[in-house]
Design a protein around this nucleic acid. Structure first.
Lengths: 142, 142
DNA sequence: TAGCATTGCATAGCTAACTATGTAATATTA
DNA sequence: TAATATTACATAGTTAGCTATGCAATGCTA
């Protein structure tokens, strides 16, 4: 009950629920955040281009995009050169929440890390990146 | 894309998938692990007693138990004194995988933490517990 | 250029988390 | 003791992740 995996899982769920509550007023949910971040950086990407930026599987992204379209955050337009692809565009609504969403995310980050010093936070992130690297190594090699 | 929350989420998903692959041969899935750990410790608990041990919501546990019953890991019997409650019992199959499951979980824990020293691992767990504490404080007070 | 392989995206079906709500049994109280 | 409140659990509906698979468009090659 105290293994790293168990604690990481627990922490991740808590963080997602905090984010969910705080961004609910903006009309978005946590799963949409990575996609929104990417589109706020650069609009009009294809699903494939987005996929390279968001660390989830293609099918998960496709479903997330469908919900975002339903929720009026994005629209899909036909790709000018490739009929299989579609370009993905933020709606006015999707654009308008950008600053507030950034602020909220940064605010949460600060709050939950408030008990850690800058050095500890850095160490914490470093450990996670090392573990992630280790997992990817283990899982691709054998 | 580099906030603590994002990285924690990513790491949690990676760890769950590692666990999923490794315990698949045992006929169990990650969501069943906490419940199994509790029942291996003490069999014949009620759902309410289990709930106190597993850090998930009651509805999630009820669904997990239903899948575990379907998969032949547990059975539910009527409670001797309270007709609302049912006691939860491991089947022979649920019992038989115990040692192998423990070994697998410990093995994964070791592997993914292999790049961290004992002190670093301790620090890592400590940071997570502090963040969890902070979240619970923030989310219950205001 | 006809046929096959690849690509881009969608869909189906699963687990697992959540909140909200329903239902029957038990406990409490007026 | 009859009415009400509480409890134990189940169910419905959502998000969000996964794998596997389907389908149409595009690209490649014999």
């Amino acid at each position: 009950m105290n293994s790293a995996g168990y604690v990481v899982n627990n922490l991740a769920r808590l963080l997602v629920e905090v984010l969910r509550k705080r961004i609910a007023p903006l009309g978005i949910v946590p799963g949409q955040f990575p996609t929104l971040l990417a589109l706020w950086e650069k609009d009009g990407l294809t699903q494939k281009e987005l996929l390279a930026l968001v660390d989830i599987e293609q099918a998960t992204l496709a479903n997330t995009l469908t919900r975002m379209e339903r929720d009026g955050l994005i629209s899909r337009k036909e790709h000018p050169a490739d009929a299989r692809a579609r370009t993905i565009h933020l709606t006015d609504q999707g654009q308008s929440i950008r600053d507030e969403a950034y602020r909220t995310a940064m605010q949460i980050n600060e709050e939950v890390l408030a008990d850690l010093s800058d050095e500890e936070t850095e160490a914490f992130l470093g450990y996670m990146h090392r573990i992630i690297g280790r997992i990817k190594e283990v899982e691709t090699k054998p």
